[in-house]
Design a protein around this nucleic acid. Sequence first.
DNA 1: AGCCTTTGACCAGCG
DNA 2: TCGCTGGTCAAAGGC
Length: 486
Amino acid sequence: MANGDWDLFSIVHSSKDTFLTPSSTIFETSPHIQTTFETSPHTLTTTTTNTIISLQNHTPYFDDFTLSHENNSVLFSPLKSNDFLSFKNFISNSNPTLTSPIRTPTITSLNTNISAFITPVTTNTTFTTPTLTAIIPTTTFTSPISTTTTNINTSINGTKRYPIILDFPIFIKQQQTKPNNNDQGVSPKPSANIEITTAHFDLAYNHPSVLRKIQRKCNQLPIQVPQTSFGVMPNTLSLHPNRKVWKRKNNNVKILECHLSVEKIKEDPWTWRKYGEKIIKGSSHPRSYYKCSSFNICSAKKIVEKSKNKENTYVVTYKGHHNHKEPKRKHKFAIGSFRNKSSKEGLSIAKVAESSSNVRNMGLSNVVTTHFDQTENINTQILSTQSKVLYPKNELTKNHLFVSQEVVSSSNVENLSSSNVMMLQFDEPKSSDAQVFTCESTIPYSQTKSMGSCDDDHDILIPNMRAMSDDILLDFNHLNGRRFFS
DNA sequence: AGCCTTTGACCAGCG
DNA sequence: TCGCTGGTCAAAGGC
Ligand SMILES: [Zn+2]
């Protein structure tokens, strides 16, 4: 796939006045805010170091921070280019001893530059960790201010009020130093496998800059937060007695598209039942339609089609979400076993699948099927995001970031090496309903390990609809006056 | 028996 | 209006 086909989804951490930019990408860690406060010249420098992966420049999001000055504090939320004015006033008003000298300062320089230094990603798997530096206000005063500010206790503390992606790029760096045992005689291998889990999306959804826009302009474009119209369920009051009618309004909404190897399809912990197969015009491979078979009212579906371009790779599109836990074990005919030989496509999969090891790590979150669901409509989304609760610890762990420890240990490395990249995509802004997330990953469902610990004391997380119990879901259904899972 | 796939018909959306 | 296309249904049969 040509890189030009991808627009990277932005987990947008933008400043208040910056619209989310669908075509740019930023992943960032918790900003580490370091400050230096010098009295001569009177300079406050705040250095916020984020770790960012991006293909293009992007207005960064600065986490809220509090400037404490003696017994006073001011919250900056977030940092804006004119914050230095607030800072100046703050300094002026907080300490009477400064009033006189500051009243008539000669400001020799004001540096309000906020700039992001982002190194372009040169390959799909080489990431840089640029430094983002913000300098607020760099104000140089003339004397006599330096003689009156020597004992001022000034500090800046990041408030870290909202969840952010923790430690994500750190793991990337670890991966980059790890030799790849399977890297034998094949041209450059991905140095990092990045498994995109619900954590990324949840945190993106929950980001305050995102939520504000949803609640304010949920119907306007561009849409910053994934939303679907997939809530149109099969009509149980069908006009045709012998046939159910599936209303296909907005049926073209893609939830998530993945390019997966055979192994990863096999390791999909969910169970699926095939309900259709279609020859698609212009495609040499048929498209298979699957429904989740674990739970009779689960609306999760997936569409599998063999990739045109890559052998042993399948394009898997997931729709809807599971309203239940992962099955403890797959029954023997679950998708992935491909027992039937009459389908040519299935046969090719079956050969590989049967020769592979058994499915492992059933309980782990997988890349997409478990958690990349959307709330059923915008109303629900607002409802859920207005109720902030803490995850139960086990759910938090389950949904946390996973990074694989090994490069794919299959025989198909050469076919997968070019796809070992995390790509998330917003649809074109003109598309009013569809939000396309595209994830191209070679991470198997297994071979993953939770490497992150959660900052439980600080993170405030939004309830994860699919991680919640069915009872809670029913409550939501009542609140919204309709049923989602029927 | 239960769950699966296969398969042609049916249905909705769209140009 | 009509035909094309993709998604879904459901009967039939397999494992
Ligand atoms: Zn399900």
